[in-house]
Design a protein around this nucleic acid. Structure first.
Lengths: 227, 227
DNA sequence: CTTATGTTTTGAACGTGTTCAGAAGGAGCG
DNA sequence: CGCTCCTTCTGAACACGTTCAAAACATAAG
Protein backbone atom coordinates (compact mmCIF):
# COMPACT_ATOMS: atom_id res chain seq x y z
CA UNK A 1 0.00 0.00 0.00
CA UNK A 2 1.72 3.19 -1.14
CA UNK A 3 0.80 6.37 0.70
CA UNK A 4 0.76 8.00 -2.71
CA UNK A 5 -2.66 9.40 -3.59
CA UNK A 6 -1.70 9.52 -7.24
CA UNK A 7 -3.17 6.72 -9.31
CA UNK A 8 -0.61 3.94 -9.31
CA UNK A 9 2.22 4.95 -11.62
CA UNK A 10 1.05 2.02 -13.78
CA UNK A 11 2.18 -1.14 -15.51
CA UNK A 12 3.74 -1.73 -18.90
CA UNK A 13 0.91 0.39 -20.31
CA UNK A 14 3.76 2.82 -20.27
CA UNK A 15 4.88 0.98 -23.37
CA UNK A 16 1.65 1.83 -25.18
CA UNK A 17 2.06 5.43 -24.11
CA UNK A 18 5.51 5.54 -25.65
CA UNK A 19 4.42 3.72 -28.76
CA UNK A 20 1.81 6.40 -29.34
CA UNK A 21 4.24 9.27 -28.79
CA UNK A 22 6.85 7.67 -31.04
CA UNK A 23 4.30 7.09 -33.78
CA UNK A 24 3.12 10.67 -33.48
CA UNK A 25 6.59 12.18 -33.65
CA UNK A 26 7.49 9.99 -36.60
CA UNK A 27 4.43 11.14 -38.51
CA UNK A 28 4.77 14.76 -37.45
CA UNK A 29 8.35 14.77 -38.66
CA UNK A 30 7.62 13.03 -41.96
CA UNK A 31 4.50 14.83 -43.04
CA UNK A 32 4.03 17.76 -40.69
CA UNK A 33 1.81 18.46 -37.71
CA UNK A 34 -1.24 19.66 -39.59
CA UNK A 35 -1.06 16.88 -42.18
CA UNK A 36 -1.14 14.23 -39.47
CA UNK A 37 -4.52 13.25 -38.03
CA UNK A 38 -5.06 11.65 -34.68
CA UNK A 39 -6.50 8.68 -36.54
CA UNK A 40 -3.20 8.35 -38.39
CA UNK A 41 -1.30 8.44 -35.14
CA UNK A 42 -3.52 5.79 -33.58
CA UNK A 43 -3.29 3.53 -36.61
CA UNK A 44 0.49 3.92 -36.81
CA UNK A 45 0.72 3.02 -33.14
CA UNK A 46 -1.60 0.06 -33.66
CA UNK A 47 -4.37 1.22 -31.35
CA UNK A 48 -7.84 2.73 -31.66
CA UNK A 49 -8.34 6.46 -31.90
CA UNK A 50 -9.59 6.75 -28.37
CA UNK A 51 -6.44 5.21 -26.93
CA UNK A 52 -4.39 8.22 -27.93
CA UNK A 53 -6.74 10.34 -25.85
CA UNK A 54 -6.48 7.97 -22.94
CA UNK A 55 -2.80 8.87 -22.69
CA UNK A 56 -2.68 12.37 -24.11
CA UNK A 57 -5.30 15.00 -23.50
CA UNK A 58 -5.01 16.49 -26.95
CA UNK A 59 -3.02 16.58 -30.15
CA UNK A 60 -0.99 19.48 -28.85
CA UNK A 61 -0.25 17.51 -25.73
CA UNK A 62 1.82 15.20 -27.89
CA UNK A 63 3.98 18.15 -28.84
CA UNK A 64 4.27 19.03 -25.18
CA UNK A 65 5.39 15.50 -24.39
CA UNK A 66 8.03 15.81 -27.08
CA UNK A 67 9.16 19.08 -25.56
CA UNK A 68 9.47 17.60 -22.08
CA UNK A 69 11.27 14.54 -23.36
CA UNK A 70 13.88 16.49 -25.31
CA UNK A 71 14.28 19.02 -22.52
CA UNK A 72 15.23 16.11 -20.30
CA UNK A 73 17.78 14.92 -22.82
CA UNK A 74 19.21 18.40 -23.35
CA UNK A 75 20.30 18.94 -19.75
CA UNK A 76 23.62 17.28 -20.40
CA UNK A 77 24.33 19.54 -23.36
CA UNK A 78 23.49 22.57 -21.24
CA UNK A 79 25.96 21.50 -18.58
CA UNK A 80 28.63 21.01 -21.20
CA UNK A 81 28.01 24.48 -22.58
CA UNK A 82 28.61 26.05 -19.18
CA UNK A 83 31.65 23.95 -18.38
CA UNK A 84 33.36 24.54 -21.70
CA UNK A 85 34.45 28.12 -20.98
CA UNK A 86 34.45 31.01 -18.56
CA UNK A 87 33.61 33.41 -21.35
CA UNK A 88 30.04 34.57 -20.94
CA UNK A 89 29.52 35.00 -24.66
CA UNK A 90 30.55 31.42 -25.36
CA UNK A 91 28.40 30.08 -22.58
CA UNK A 92 25.26 31.83 -23.75
CA UNK A 93 25.89 30.84 -27.33
CA UNK A 94 26.45 27.29 -26.13
CA UNK A 95 23.15 27.21 -24.30
CA UNK A 96 21.25 28.60 -27.24
CA UNK A 97 22.86 26.30 -29.75
CA UNK A 98 22.13 23.35 -27.49
CA UNK A 99 18.51 24.46 -27.61
CA UNK A 100 18.59 24.59 -31.38
CA UNK A 101 19.97 21.10 -31.74
CA UNK A 102 17.46 19.88 -29.19
CA UNK A 103 14.76 20.84 -31.68
CA UNK A 104 16.64 20.42 -34.93
CA UNK A 105 14.88 17.25 -36.08
CA UNK A 106 11.44 18.66 -35.45
CA UNK A 107 11.74 22.33 -36.25
CA UNK A 108 8.46 22.51 -38.15
CA UNK A 109 6.66 20.78 -35.31
CA UNK A 110 7.28 23.79 -33.15
CA UNK A 111 5.03 26.10 -35.12
CA UNK A 112 2.27 24.12 -33.45
CA UNK A 113 3.73 24.94 -30.05
CA UNK A 114 4.16 28.55 -31.16
CA UNK A 115 0.50 29.06 -31.80
CA UNK A 116 -0.49 27.71 -28.45
CA UNK A 117 2.51 29.39 -26.87
CA UNK A 118 1.58 33.01 -27.43
CA UNK A 119 -1.44 32.68 -25.20
CA UNK A 120 -0.14 32.31 -21.65
CA UNK A 121 -3.46 30.82 -20.57
CA UNK A 122 -2.93 27.82 -22.80
CA UNK A 123 -1.73 24.80 -20.93
CA UNK A 124 1.45 24.43 -22.97
CA UNK A 125 2.53 28.03 -23.28
CA UNK A 126 6.16 28.52 -22.24
CA UNK A 127 4.89 31.52 -20.27
CA UNK A 128 2.02 29.75 -18.52
CA UNK A 129 1.76 28.14 -15.12
CA UNK A 130 1.88 24.52 -16.29
CA UNK A 131 5.36 24.97 -17.70
CA UNK A 132 6.78 26.90 -14.75
CA UNK A 133 8.98 24.03 -13.70
CA UNK A 134 10.75 23.66 -17.04
CA UNK A 135 10.94 27.41 -17.40
CA UNK A 136 12.57 27.91 -14.01
CA UNK A 137 15.04 25.13 -14.70
CA UNK A 138 15.96 26.79 -17.96
CA UNK A 139 16.35 30.18 -16.32
CA UNK A 140 18.64 28.55 -13.77
CA UNK A 141 21.02 27.58 -16.58
CA UNK A 142 21.46 31.24 -17.47
CA UNK A 143 22.10 31.95 -13.80
CA UNK A 144 24.90 29.43 -13.87
CA UNK A 145 26.24 30.93 -17.09
CA UNK A 146 26.65 34.25 -15.31
CA UNK A 147 28.23 32.80 -12.18
CA UNK A 148 31.99 33.05 -12.29
CA UNK A 149 32.03 34.27 -15.86
CA UNK A 150 34.38 36.86 -17.34
CA UNK A 151 31.81 39.65 -17.21
CA UNK A 152 31.05 41.39 -13.95
CA UNK A 153 27.49 42.47 -13.39
CA UNK A 154 26.20 45.50 -11.45
CA UNK A 155 24.51 44.37 -8.22
CA UNK A 156 21.16 45.94 -8.98
CA UNK A 157 20.96 44.30 -12.40
CA UNK A 158 22.09 40.86 -11.28
CA UNK A 159 18.81 39.44 -9.98
CA UNK A 160 17.01 40.27 -13.23
CA UNK A 161 19.60 39.08 -15.69
CA UNK A 162 18.91 35.33 -15.80
CA UNK A 163 15.25 35.86 -16.63
CA UNK A 164 16.18 38.56 -19.09
CA UNK A 165 18.61 36.30 -20.89
CA UNK A 166 15.98 33.57 -20.92
CA UNK A 167 13.56 35.93 -22.63
CA UNK A 168 16.27 36.85 -25.11
CA UNK A 169 16.82 33.17 -25.79
CA UNK A 170 13.09 32.63 -26.29
CA UNK A 171 13.11 35.40 -28.85
CA UNK A 172 15.89 33.70 -30.72
CA UNK A 173 14.12 30.36 -30.59
CA UNK A 174 11.08 32.05 -32.08
CA UNK A 175 13.20 33.58 -34.82
CA UNK A 176 14.80 30.19 -35.42
CA UNK A 177 11.47 28.45 -35.78
CA UNK A 178 10.14 30.84 -38.38
CA UNK A 179 13.49 31.16 -40.17
CA UNK A 180 13.22 29.63 -43.64
CA UNK A 181 16.71 30.55 -44.84
CA UNK A 182 18.97 27.52 -45.49
CA UNK A 183 20.47 26.18 -42.28
CA UNK A 184 18.78 29.06 -40.51
CA UNK A 185 21.66 31.35 -41.49
CA UNK A 186 19.65 34.43 -40.76
CA UNK A 187 19.16 33.38 -37.17
CA UNK A 188 22.90 32.74 -36.90
CA UNK A 189 23.65 36.27 -38.04
CA UNK A 190 21.18 37.72 -35.58
CA UNK A 191 22.65 35.57 -32.83
CA UNK A 192 26.14 36.86 -33.61
CA UNK A 193 25.12 40.49 -33.69
CA UNK A 194 22.93 40.41 -30.60
CA UNK A 195 25.47 38.51 -28.51
CA UNK A 196 28.09 41.14 -29.28
CA UNK A 197 25.68 43.87 -28.35
CA UNK A 198 24.60 42.23 -25.12
CA UNK A 199 28.13 41.60 -23.91
CA UNK A 200 29.16 45.15 -24.64
CA UNK A 201 26.04 46.50 -22.96
CA UNK A 202 26.87 44.51 -19.85
CA UNK A 203 30.49 45.70 -19.90
CA UNK A 204 29.43 49.29 -20.26
CA UNK A 205 26.56 49.14 -17.80
CA UNK A 206 28.89 49.38 -14.80
CA UNK A 207 30.36 52.72 -15.85
CA UNK A 208 29.29 55.56 -13.54
CA UNK A 209 27.95 57.52 -16.50
CA UNK A 210 25.42 54.77 -17.03
CA UNK A 211 23.79 55.19 -13.65
CA UNK A 212 20.66 57.05 -14.80
CA UNK A 213 20.16 54.82 -17.82
CA UNK A 214 20.45 51.72 -15.67
CA UNK A 215 17.92 53.17 -13.26
CA UNK A 216 15.42 53.55 -16.05
CA UNK A 217 16.11 50.08 -17.37
CA UNK A 218 15.55 48.69 -13.90
CA UNK A 219 12.22 50.45 -13.74
CA UNK A 220 11.21 48.65 -16.89
CA UNK A 221 12.29 45.32 -15.48
CA UNK A 222 10.33 45.90 -12.30
CA UNK A 223 7.24 46.91 -14.27
CA UNK A 224 7.48 43.70 -16.28
CA UNK A 225 8.07 41.39 -13.35
CA UNK A 226 5.76 43.05 -10.88
CA UNK A 227 2.36 41.52 -10.05
CA UNK B 1 -16.90 47.00 -70.57
CA UNK B 2 -14.45 47.93 -67.87
CA UNK B 3 -10.79 47.21 -68.59
CA UNK B 4 -10.62 46.01 -65.00
CA UNK B 5 -9.84 42.31 -64.84
CA UNK B 6 -11.11 42.23 -61.26
CA UNK B 7 -14.60 40.82 -60.89
CA UNK B 8 -16.94 43.79 -60.89
CA UNK B 9 -16.78 45.44 -57.48
CA UNK B 10 -20.40 44.25 -57.12
CA UNK B 11 -23.90 45.34 -56.29
CA UNK B 12 -25.73 45.71 -53.01
CA UNK B 13 -24.46 42.25 -52.13
CA UNK B 14 -22.04 44.45 -50.28
CA UNK B 15 -24.90 44.81 -47.84
CA UNK B 16 -24.96 41.08 -47.18
CA UNK B 17 -21.22 41.11 -46.70
CA UNK B 18 -21.54 43.78 -44.04
CA UNK B 19 -24.49 42.10 -42.40
CA UNK B 20 -22.36 38.98 -41.95
CA UNK B 21 -19.40 40.89 -40.53
CA UNK B 22 -21.61 42.86 -38.17
CA UNK B 23 -23.33 39.72 -36.94
CA UNK B 24 -19.97 38.05 -36.43
CA UNK B 25 -18.48 40.92 -34.45
CA UNK B 26 -21.60 41.20 -32.33
CA UNK B 27 -21.44 37.52 -31.43
CA UNK B 28 -17.67 37.50 -30.97
CA UNK B 29 -17.94 40.41 -28.60
CA UNK B 30 -20.86 39.02 -26.61
CA UNK B 31 -19.81 35.42 -26.21
CA UNK B 32 -16.22 35.18 -27.42
CA UNK B 33 -14.52 33.96 -30.57
CA UNK B 34 -14.29 30.29 -29.68
CA UNK B 35 -17.85 30.14 -28.36
CA UNK B 36 -19.24 31.46 -31.62
CA UNK B 37 -19.79 29.00 -34.46
CA UNK B 38 -19.97 29.90 -38.11
CA UNK B 39 -23.51 28.51 -38.07
CA UNK B 40 -24.35 31.02 -35.35
CA UNK B 41 -22.90 33.83 -37.41
CA UNK B 42 -24.84 32.80 -40.51
CA UNK B 43 -28.10 32.44 -38.60
CA UNK B 44 -27.63 35.79 -36.87
CA UNK B 45 -27.02 37.39 -40.26
CA UNK B 46 -30.05 35.59 -41.72
CA UNK B 47 -28.20 33.59 -44.36
CA UNK B 48 -27.11 29.99 -44.86
CA UNK B 49 -23.80 28.75 -43.53
CA UNK B 50 -22.21 28.68 -46.94
CA UNK B 51 -22.91 32.36 -47.54
CA UNK B 52 -20.45 33.37 -44.85
CA UNK B 53 -17.82 31.46 -46.78
CA UNK B 54 -18.82 33.08 -50.00
CA UNK B 55 -17.74 36.42 -48.56
CA UNK B 56 -15.07 35.42 -46.08
CA UNK B 57 -12.54 32.68 -46.66
CA UNK B 58 -12.47 31.55 -43.06
CA UNK B 59 -13.53 32.34 -39.54
CA UNK B 60 -10.26 34.11 -38.91
CA UNK B 61 -10.85 36.17 -42.01
CA UNK B 62 -13.69 37.81 -40.17
CA UNK B 63 -11.22 38.96 -37.54
CA UNK B 64 -9.00 40.26 -40.29
CA UNK B 65 -11.91 42.20 -41.77
CA UNK B 66 -12.52 43.71 -38.35
CA UNK B 67 -8.87 44.66 -38.14
CA UNK B 68 -8.90 46.36 -41.54
CA UNK B 69 -12.12 48.17 -40.79
CA UNK B 70 -10.94 49.59 -37.47
CA UNK B 71 -7.51 50.43 -38.89
CA UNK B 72 -9.33 52.56 -41.42
CA UNK B 73 -11.25 54.32 -38.70
CA UNK B 74 -8.17 54.84 -36.53
CA UNK B 75 -6.26 56.92 -39.06
CA UNK B 76 -7.89 60.09 -37.81
CA UNK B 77 -6.87 59.34 -34.23
CA UNK B 78 -3.30 58.72 -35.37
CA UNK B 79 -3.19 62.08 -37.10
CA UNK B 80 -4.49 63.77 -33.99
CA UNK B 81 -1.82 62.09 -31.87
CA UNK B 82 0.93 63.51 -34.07
CA UNK B 83 -0.58 66.97 -34.33
CA UNK B 84 -1.18 67.33 -30.61
CA UNK B 85 2.45 67.91 -29.65
CA UNK B 86 6.04 68.19 -30.78
CA UNK B 87 7.17 66.06 -27.88
CA UNK B 88 8.22 62.65 -29.16
CA UNK B 89 7.19 60.87 -26.01
CA UNK B 90 3.67 62.26 -26.19
CA UNK B 91 3.39 61.42 -29.87
CA UNK B 92 4.40 57.81 -29.45
CA UNK B 93 2.16 57.38 -26.45
CA UNK B 94 -0.64 58.97 -28.45
CA UNK B 95 -0.19 56.51 -31.31
CA UNK B 96 -0.11 53.54 -29.01
CA UNK B 97 -3.10 54.61 -26.99
CA UNK B 98 -5.00 55.23 -30.20
CA UNK B 99 -4.21 51.63 -31.10
CA UNK B 100 -5.51 50.43 -27.76
CA UNK B 101 -8.79 52.25 -28.09
CA UNK B 102 -9.09 51.01 -31.65
CA UNK B 103 -9.29 47.49 -30.19
CA UNK B 104 -10.81 48.25 -26.80
CA UNK B 105 -14.26 46.84 -27.51
CA UNK B 106 -12.92 43.61 -28.88
CA UNK B 107 -9.80 42.91 -26.87
CA UNK B 108 -10.52 39.23 -26.37
CA UNK B 109 -11.13 38.82 -30.09
CA UNK B 110 -7.50 39.53 -30.74
CA UNK B 111 -6.22 36.39 -29.10
CA UNK B 112 -7.55 34.74 -32.24
CA UNK B 113 -5.43 37.05 -34.35
CA UNK B 114 -2.48 36.42 -32.04
CA UNK B 115 -2.43 32.72 -32.70
CA UNK B 116 -2.47 33.17 -36.42
CA UNK B 117 -0.17 36.16 -36.11
CA UNK B 118 2.94 34.46 -34.76
CA UNK B 119 3.33 32.48 -37.93
CA UNK B 120 4.39 34.92 -40.66
CA UNK B 121 3.26 32.46 -43.30
CA UNK B 122 -0.33 32.77 -42.16
CA UNK B 123 -2.37 35.05 -44.34
CA UNK B 124 -3.32 37.40 -41.53
CA UNK B 125 -0.06 37.62 -39.65
CA UNK B 126 0.97 41.24 -39.01
CA UNK B 127 4.41 40.16 -40.21
CA UNK B 128 3.30 38.42 -43.38
CA UNK B 129 3.09 39.61 -46.96
CA UNK B 130 -0.69 40.01 -47.10
CA UNK B 131 -0.64 42.66 -44.43
CA UNK B 132 2.32 44.60 -45.80
CA UNK B 133 0.17 47.51 -46.85
CA UNK B 134 -1.35 48.10 -43.43
CA UNK B 135 2.00 47.48 -41.78
CA UNK B 136 3.82 50.03 -43.93
CA UNK B 137 1.11 52.59 -43.36
CA UNK B 138 1.46 52.06 -39.63
CA UNK B 139 5.24 52.35 -39.78
CA UNK B 140 4.81 55.60 -41.66
CA UNK B 141 2.98 57.06 -38.66
CA UNK B 142 6.03 56.48 -36.53
CA UNK B 143 8.10 58.16 -39.21
CA UNK B 144 5.87 61.20 -38.93
CA UNK B 145 6.12 61.09 -35.15
CA UNK B 146 9.88 61.45 -35.43
CA UNK B 147 9.80 64.21 -38.05
CA UNK B 148 10.16 67.62 -36.46
CA UNK B 149 9.97 66.25 -32.94
CA UNK B 150 11.91 67.45 -29.91
CA UNK B 151 14.43 64.60 -30.07
CA UNK B 152 17.23 64.66 -32.60
CA UNK B 153 18.25 61.34 -34.06
CA UNK B 154 21.72 60.23 -35.22
CA UNK B 155 21.84 59.97 -39.01
CA UNK B 156 22.82 56.31 -39.08
CA UNK B 157 20.02 55.31 -36.77
CA UNK B 158 17.32 57.36 -38.45
CA UNK B 159 16.32 55.00 -41.27
CA UNK B 160 15.77 52.12 -38.87
CA UNK B 161 13.87 53.90 -36.16
CA UNK B 162 10.33 53.93 -37.56
CA UNK B 163 10.32 50.16 -38.05
CA UNK B 164 11.94 49.71 -34.66
CA UNK B 165 9.27 51.77 -32.95
CA UNK B 166 6.62 49.83 -34.80
CA UNK B 167 8.04 46.58 -33.45
CA UNK B 168 8.08 48.10 -29.98
CA UNK B 169 4.45 49.07 -30.40
CA UNK B 170 3.57 45.54 -31.55
CA UNK B 171 5.18 44.20 -28.42
CA UNK B 172 3.04 46.47 -26.33
CA UNK B 173 -0.09 45.50 -28.20
CA UNK B 174 0.75 41.88 -27.50
CA UNK B 175 1.25 42.63 -23.83
CA UNK B 176 -2.02 44.55 -23.82
CA UNK B 177 -3.95 41.68 -25.34
CA UNK B 178 -2.78 39.14 -22.81
CA UNK B 179 -2.99 41.58 -19.90
CA UNK B 180 -5.73 40.48 -17.50
CA UNK B 181 -5.15 43.17 -14.85
CA UNK B 182 -8.09 45.59 -14.45
CA UNK B 183 -8.04 48.29 -17.11
CA UNK B 184 -4.78 46.77 -18.32
CA UNK B 185 -2.92 48.69 -15.62
CA UNK B 186 0.13 46.50 -15.99
CA UNK B 187 0.47 47.43 -19.63
CA UNK B 188 0.18 51.08 -18.67
CA UNK B 189 3.05 50.74 -16.21
CA UNK B 190 5.19 49.02 -18.80
CA UNK B 191 4.31 51.69 -21.35
CA UNK B 192 5.37 54.43 -18.92
CA UNK B 193 8.66 52.79 -18.03
CA UNK B 194 9.65 51.80 -21.56
CA UNK B 195 8.79 55.19 -23.05
CA UNK B 196 11.06 56.88 -20.51
CA UNK B 197 13.83 54.46 -21.32
CA UNK B 198 13.47 54.84 -25.07
CA UNK B 199 13.52 58.61 -25.00
CA UNK B 200 16.59 58.67 -22.81
CA UNK B 201 18.31 56.10 -24.98
CA UNK B 202 17.67 58.26 -28.02
CA UNK B 203 18.92 61.37 -26.24
CA UNK B 204 22.08 59.63 -25.13
CA UNK B 205 22.73 57.81 -28.38
CA UNK B 206 24.20 60.92 -30.03
CA UNK B 207 26.96 61.31 -27.44
CA UNK B 208 30.40 60.57 -28.91
CA UNK B 209 31.04 57.99 -26.20
CA UNK B 210 28.16 55.97 -27.59
CA UNK B 211 29.74 55.48 -30.99
CA UNK B 212 30.88 51.88 -30.55
CA UNK B 213 27.65 50.82 -28.88
CA UNK B 214 25.62 52.36 -31.63
CA UNK B 215 27.73 50.57 -34.21
CA UNK B 216 26.91 47.25 -32.60
CA UNK B 217 23.24 48.09 -32.35
CA UNK B 218 23.24 48.98 -36.04
CA UNK B 219 24.77 45.63 -36.84
CA UNK B 220 21.84 43.98 -35.09
CA UNK B 221 19.37 46.06 -37.02
CA UNK B 222 21.00 45.20 -40.32
CA UNK B 223 21.03 41.50 -39.44
CA UNK B 224 17.32 41.65 -38.70
CA UNK B 225 16.32 43.60 -41.77
CA UNK B 226 18.69 41.98 -44.24
CA UNK B 227 17.43 39.38 -46.72
C1' DC C 1 -12.76 -21.40 -10.90
C1' DT C 2 -15.90 -17.43 -9.96
C1' DT C 3 -16.73 -13.02 -8.83
C1' DA C 4 -15.60 -8.16 -8.05
C1' DT C 5 -12.94 -4.14 -9.03
C1' DG C 6 -9.98 -1.46 -11.46
C1' DT C 7 -7.37 -0.34 -15.81
C1' DT C 8 -6.94 -0.19 -20.65
C1' DT C 9 -8.89 -0.22 -25.21
C1' DT C 10 -12.46 0.13 -28.57
C1' DG C 11 -15.17 2.38 -32.14
C1' DA C 12 -19.26 4.89 -32.87
C1' DA C 13 -20.93 9.53 -32.34
C1' DC C 14 -20.64 14.60 -31.79
C1' DG C 15 -19.38 19.45 -32.86
C1' DT C 16 -17.52 22.63 -35.73
C1' DG C 17 -14.76 24.66 -39.62
C1' DT C 18 -14.98 24.18 -44.34
C1' DT C 19 -16.27 22.58 -49.20
C1' DC C 20 -19.19 21.83 -53.00
C1' DA C 21 -22.77 20.71 -56.40
C1' DG C 22 -26.41 22.85 -57.64
C1' DA C 23 -30.75 26.08 -56.92
C1' DA C 24 -32.34 30.91 -57.11
C1' DG C 25 -32.02 35.35 -58.70
C1' DG C 26 -31.15 38.75 -61.66
C1' DA C 27 -29.33 41.41 -66.19
C1' DG C 28 -28.86 41.77 -70.95
C1' DC C 29 -30.55 40.34 -75.46
C1' DG C 30 -33.40 38.42 -79.25
C1' DC D 1 -41.46 36.56 -72.96
C1' DG D 2 -37.76 33.02 -73.25
C1' DC D 3 -32.90 32.15 -73.26
C1' DT D 4 -28.12 32.57 -71.58
C1' DC D 5 -24.72 33.78 -68.37
C1' DC D 6 -23.08 35.44 -64.20
C1' DT D 7 -23.48 36.37 -59.29
C1' DT D 8 -25.41 35.10 -55.00
C1' DC D 9 -27.02 31.78 -51.89
C1' DT D 10 -28.39 27.14 -50.08
C1' DG D 11 -27.90 23.06 -47.26
C1' DA D 12 -26.09 18.57 -47.33
C1' DA D 13 -21.70 16.37 -46.88
C1' DC D 14 -16.89 15.95 -45.35
C1' DA D 15 -12.76 15.92 -42.31
C1' DC D 16 -10.83 15.93 -38.17
C1' DG D 17 -10.27 16.84 -33.03
C1' DT D 18 -12.46 15.10 -29.28
C1' DT D 19 -15.80 12.52 -26.07
C1' DC D 20 -18.01 8.57 -24.19
C1' DA D 21 -20.48 4.30 -23.16
C1' DA D 22 -19.26 -0.01 -23.06
C1' DA D 23 -16.21 -4.07 -24.12
C1' DA D 24 -11.88 -6.48 -23.04
C1' DC D 25 -8.39 -7.44 -20.07
C1' DA D 26 -5.87 -7.90 -15.61
C1' DT D 27 -5.59 -8.76 -10.83
C1' DA D 28 -6.93 -9.92 -6.40
C1' DA D 29 -10.12 -12.24 -3.15
C1' DG D 30 -12.99 -15.91 -1.76
Amino acid sequence: MTSDIERRPTAKAEETRNRILDAALRLFRDRGFDQTTMRDVATEAGVATGAAYYYYRSKEDLVMAFYLRTDQEAQEAFAKAIASSKELKKRIRGLIEAKFSQFAEHRSLLTALLKAGVDPRERLSPFGTETKQVRDANIAWFERALEGSDVSIPKDLAPHLPRLLWMYHMGLVYQWIIDETPEQRRTQRILDATLDLIIQLLRVSSLPLMGPLRKRALKVLRAVEED
